[in-house]
Write a protein that binds this DNA or RNA. Structure first.
Lengths: 197, 197
DNA sequence: ATGGTTCTCTTACGGTGTAAAAATGTCAAG
DNA sequence: CTTGACATTTTTACACCGTAAGAGAACCAT
C-alpha cells in the first residue's frame, strides 16, 4: 500500500490502540507497515510531530459530533460533553497524550467557537470559563474512568470503612455513563444558577 | 550525603521539577546525586517504581491540607479542591504522571475516607460520585492550566471571531484561581441542588 | 585483622530517536 | 530503450536509555 502521512498516522493510531503509547517506536511502527523505521521520517519530521498528529486525529472526530447550535445552551453542552466523552473513550490508549499535549487543534477551536456562539447569554469571559470547565471536566473524568478500567476494585484491608461500605453498595461497578451524567448535570445546573444572578 | 529511598525520591522530585519527566533517566538522576545510575537500583526496584514513588510523595502532601471535618460539606469540598489544586500546582512537571498513573495511594484514600464522612448526607454511592467528580475536575483543570502556562495566548488568524473577542476581553489572562473558583462553585451548587430533591 | 553485610561500580545487552549518506524505485524527456 | 532527475527507502552510525549480573569497595562487629 502506498505510504503517506495519513497512512502513517492511521497505522500509528492502530498500533497505539493495540499496544499502548509506551510501546510505540518508530522502528516498530515502520515494521507494522512493512518498512524500515527511518522511512517514516520522510512523512513526519520526528516522533513528537507524529504524536501531535494523533492528537489532531482524535480531536477531528469531534467536529462531526457537534450538537445542533440551535439547542438551548444547557442541552448543547450536555450533548457536547457526551460526544466528547464518546470520542475520547474510543481511543483510551491515547488519553495520556491528550492529557499531556496541547489540544488546541483547529478542530477543537472549531468546537470552541461554536460553543461560544451557543453560550451567547453569558459574558464572553464567563462563556470561556464555562466551556473550559466542561472540557476540562470531561477529560479528567475519562482519564479517571480509563484508569479505573484496568484494575480490580481496590481492596481495603479495613482501614477505610466508609469506602468499603460505598464499594459494597455498588459504587465503582455501576455504569460509568450514569456517573458521568450525574456530574455533568450538576455542573450545568451550577452554571445555570450563576447565569440567573 | 547518605543515600536512601527517601533521598533518591527527593532528588528525583527536584530533578523533575527542574527538567521535566521526559528528561529524567536513571543515569542522570544518579549523576545528580554524585553516583552511578545503577546505584539507585539498590533503593528502587526499577524506574516505574520510582515514578510511582513520586506520585505517592505528591499525594502525601494532601494529607496535611485536609480541611476541618466539622465544616459543612460544600465548604469542605471547596477548600479541599483548592488544597488539591495548590498541591498539584506545586509540582506542575509531575502532572503527566498524576494523569497517567494510579493515584489511589494511602494518602489519597485517606482524603477519600474523610470526604465520605463529610458527605454523610448523601447516599454512599452518590457521595462517591461527588468526590470523584471533584478530584477529577481538579486534575483536569490543573492539567489545562499548566498546559496553557507554557504557551503564548494562541493566535487566531481570523477564523474564530468569538474566541478572538473573548481573548480580547481578557479571557486567558485573568487569575487562574478565579476561573477555578467559578467552576468549583458551580459544580458544588449543582450537587447541592441534587441533594435537595 | 577478619569476615560478613551493605552498598556502589563495571560491564554488557538490546532497545530507543534520529542524522547522514547510500541505495533503490519511479517516471518523463530524449 | 536509455538517461537522468527526483521521490522514496534502506544502511550505517551515534549517543542515549533501562536494567541484569557480577565484581569491587566500604563499612562495622567480632
Amino acid at each position: 500500500m502506498r505510504l503517506s502521512r495519513d497512512v502513517v498516522l492511521d497505522a500509528a493510531l492502530r498500533f497505539v490502540d493495540e499496544h499502548g503509547v509506551q510501546a510505540l517506536s518508530m522502528r516498530k511502527l515502520g515494521a507494522s507497515l512493512g518498512v524500515e523505521g527511518m522511512a517514516l521520517y520522510y512523512y513526519v519530521p520526528n516522533k513528537d510531530a507524529l504524536l501531535d498528529g494523533l492528537v489532531e486525529r482524535v480531536t477531528e472526530a469531534l467536529t462531526d459530533e457537534l450538537p445542533d447550535r440551535e439547542l438551548p445552551w444547557q442541552e448543547w453542552l450536555r450533548r457536547f460533553a457526551h460526544a466528547m466523552r464518546a470520542v475520547l473513550t474510543r481511543h483510551p490508549a491515547l488519553l495520556p497524550l491528550l492529557a499531556t499535549r496541547d489540544v488546541m487543534t483547529p478542530a477543537f477551536l472549531g468546537a470552541f467557537e461554536t460553543a461560544l456562539e451557543v453560550l451567547g447569554s453569558f459574558q464572553p469571559k464567563q462563556a470561556v470559563h464555562v466551556f473550559n470547565s466542561v472540557t476540562t471536566f470531561v477529560l479528567g473524568h475519562v482519564l479517571a474512568e480509563a484508569g479505573r478500567a484496568g484494575q480490580h476494585p481496590p481492596e481495603f484491608p479495613g482501614g477505610y470503612p466508609l469506602i468499603a461500605r460505598a464499594v459494597a453498595a455498588g459504587a465503582g461497578h455501576d455504569d460509568d455513563a450514569e456517573r458521568f451524567d450525574f456530574a455533568i448535570g450538576a455542573l450545568l445546573d451550577g452554571f445555570d444558577r450563576r447565569l440567573c444572578t
